[in-house]
């Protein structure tokens, strides 16, 4: 996979839990342009172990002197966000992938309803730049815990002006999803990014109101969950690998020196899909990619986020 060699140009604490990072290219040239909603995967060397986390690009797609990401420090994290918060400093070299977009705007949409919860605001920052440039009709609905957690409100006020609607939980302000989605013209698309409870409510509300499936968009990157250690066998490479509790299958495969395909590393894109040849236990599917029937069939697994609990899991790799 082609990577970009970047340098950390700035680090800024924007809320008690969120840090904002600015990356520039190592050789001083411009970074590639991208489309609103894109992310990059950042590689981190944590004690000799490579972590790769996806983060949305927040800047304007037109301003390619620098890339901007924001990272929320996760409690119970396996170390990626903690590393970004505690060890990444100005001047450090950092490797990132080329931008990938799994949360793109529907260009033929007549109106766009953007709904963000907390750090879920990040992919919308670049989408808003695109929507403004195209003169599109949109509304930005942004819910967060308390005033000090409202990262980027001032920036959003400037870019969205009257299109911005904020909901501050500590002040008793609630976003009424049914009222919002129940009163939109035909041809409207809705996009949601935030905590999984919020994403679920938006998806269910839209479906219950009869929104067409292709007008409902969401992005939820998953962190590989921590679990019990288990063993896997790779048929083509002819080796057995132990997957430790705090490592994903994909990371364990990479650490064993076997090359595996990947893109988002968050259970969304489907690129790392592996065929299961044999298994004697259950597969713990954690991804958003496989269909329910594919998950039941146990013929495929997404090693970036999913795990297993048997003694034998023979993969076609």
């Amino acid at each position: 996979m082609s990577m970009i060699n970047a340098i950390v140009a700035a680090v800024e604490q924007v809320t008690p839990l969120v840090k904002h990072f600015t990356f520039v290219k190592e050789d001083g040239s411009k970074l590639p342009p991208f489309s609103g909603g894109s992310h990059v995967v950042v590689s981190m060397d944590i004690g000799g172990r490579v972590h790769r986390n996806p983060y949305s690009l927040m800047g304007s797609p037109e301003a390619t002197d620098a890339y901007h990401i924001s990272v929320r420090k996760q409690e119970n994290s396996r170390g990626g966000s903690v590393f970004m918060h505690e060890h990444v400093t100005v001047g450090m070299p950092i490797k990132i992938t080329y931008p990938v977009n799994l949360f793109s705007l529907a260009k033929k949409g007549h109106k766009h309803i953007l709904i963000a919860g907390g750090i879920g605001i990040t992919p919308f920052m670049s989408q808003i730049a695109d929507l403004n440039r195209l003169g599109a009709d949109y509304e930005m609905h942004y819910a967060f815990r308390s005033p000090e957690h409202g990262a980027f409100v001032e920036q959003l006020k400037k870019s969205c002006s009257s299109r911005l609607h904020c909901y501050i939980d500590s002040q008793g302000e609630q976003l009424d999803f049914k009222a919002l989605l129940g009163d939109q013209p035909l041809g409207t698309h809705v996009y949601v990014c935030g905590p999984s409870s919020m994403v679920t409510v938006v998806l269910e509300t839209a479906r219950n109101l009869g929104w067409p499936e292709r007008h409902i968009h969401n992005e939820q990157f998953l962190s590989p969950p921590v679990g019990e250690p288990f063993n896997i066998q790779l048929a083509k490479s002819n080796i057995e690998i132990q997957v430790p509790a705090d490592m994903s299958m994909l990371e364990a495969i990479e650490a064993a020196g076997v090359e595996a395909d990947y893109l988002c590393r968050g259970g969304v894109c489907g690129r790392c899909e592996l065929q299961v040849l044999e298994t004697d236990g259950a597969i713990l599917h954690n991804d958003h990619f496989l269909t329910d029937s594919e998950k039941v069939s146990c013929k495929k697994i997404m090693p970036c986020v999913s795990r297993a609990n048997g003694k034998r899991l023979l993969l076609d790799l």
């Binding site: 082609s2 991208f34 080329y98 990938v100 893109l263 894109c269 489907g270 690129r271």
Partner: peptide
């Protein structure tokens, strides 16, 4: 199609 939907910029 599946392959192309994952086609990456730069590759």
């Amino acid at each position: 199609l599946k392959h192309l939907l994952n086609l990456q910029f730069g590759s």
